[in-house]
């Protein structure tokens, strides 16, 4: 579904900060890939390159049979198929929960207002917040905000969902409710790429865990392989710190 070839990403004026170094990956439909690794390892950058929120320095990214990294590609069309959930939720504070969810479907999928709202109500039910339709984001807790953000991304009926540390900005007691929604989503067969520090979630949900460090994928495999019998010393070191 997504193929990444020789992906490089530099930051700084002369590209002196190399964040991603030659990433080659293939993500299949229905896969749940969890990316772990120390901070600064390039996990988020990699995820953000997939929908070109970060412009890759070089390399190719294919989404199904389209080359995302080409200049000719209509990235906005592709982004509609790739939902994204952010660490800081990024709900639109000037709009109600309902408008947050329906804005993109109405403007981009040319759905009627009623149609979009019907779907939004469904999604709100799914994330367990049907009563919050009229609320503003400022009136919600962090966990509720993130659930709304998930609903907002789902409203576009994406083929793949990108999660960029979705629980890192949450109070500990709210992490669970968000992970629960994500688990349900995984069970429904959604293709998911998740950057997270929640090892429990990785063990439980992932088909594949990817360990990144210093801009490279050091090791990957099933959760058992990664967590029970890590091979590289860096992964061992990392796991000893987080588990």
């Amino acid at each position: 579904m997504i193929t990444v070839k020789n992906l490089y990403k530099d930051f700084g004026k002369n590209g002196e900060i190399k964040v991603l170094k030659d990433i080659n990956e293939k993500i299949e439909k229905g896969e749940k890939v969890v990316i772990i690794g120390p901070s600064g390892s390039g996990k988020s950058t990699f995820l953000r390159c997939l929908n070109r929120l970060e412009e890759p320095t070089s390399g190719e990214i294919w989404f199904e049979d389209e080359l995302i990294t080409s200049k000719k590609c209509d990235i906005n069309k592709l982004r509609m198929k790739m939902g994204m959930v952010f660490q800081h939720f990024n709900l639109f504070p000037h709009l109600t929960v309902m408008d947050n969810i329906t804005l993109a479907p109405v403007k981009l999928l040319k759905k009627s207002k009623a149609e979009a709202e019907e779907r939004a109500a469904e999604l709100l039910k799914r994330v367990g917040l049907p009563e919050k339709a009229k609320a503003f984001p400022g009136q919600l807790s962090g966990g509720q905000k993130q659930r709304i953000a998930i609903a907002r991304a789902l409203a576009m009926n994406p083929d793949v969902m990108l999660f960029d540390e979705p629980t890192s900005a949450l109070d500990p007691e709210m992490v669970g409710e968000v992970l629960e929604i994500m688990k349900e989503l995984a069970e429904d067969g959604m293709t998911m790429i998740v950057v997270t520090h929640e090892m429990g979630f990785a063990k439980e949900v992932a088909n594949r865990v990817m360990f990144m460090d210093e801009g490279k994928v050091i090791e990957q495999g099933t959760p058992e392989e990664i967590f029970s019998s890590p091979k590289s010393p860096r992964l061992k070191d990392f796991l000893s710190k987080v588990l």
């Binding site: 929908n51 929120l53 906005n76 069309k77 592709l78 982004r79 509609m80 790739m82 939902g83 994204m84 952010f86 990024n90 709900l91 639109f92 804005l103 993109a104 403007k107 981009l108 953000a149 907002r152 991304a153 576009m156």
Partner: peptide, 9 residues
């Protein structure tokens, strides 16, 4: 970013 990630121009 949130807007763009949804596909808005």
């Amino acid at each position: 970013e949130a807007g763009r990630s949804l596909g808005l121009t």
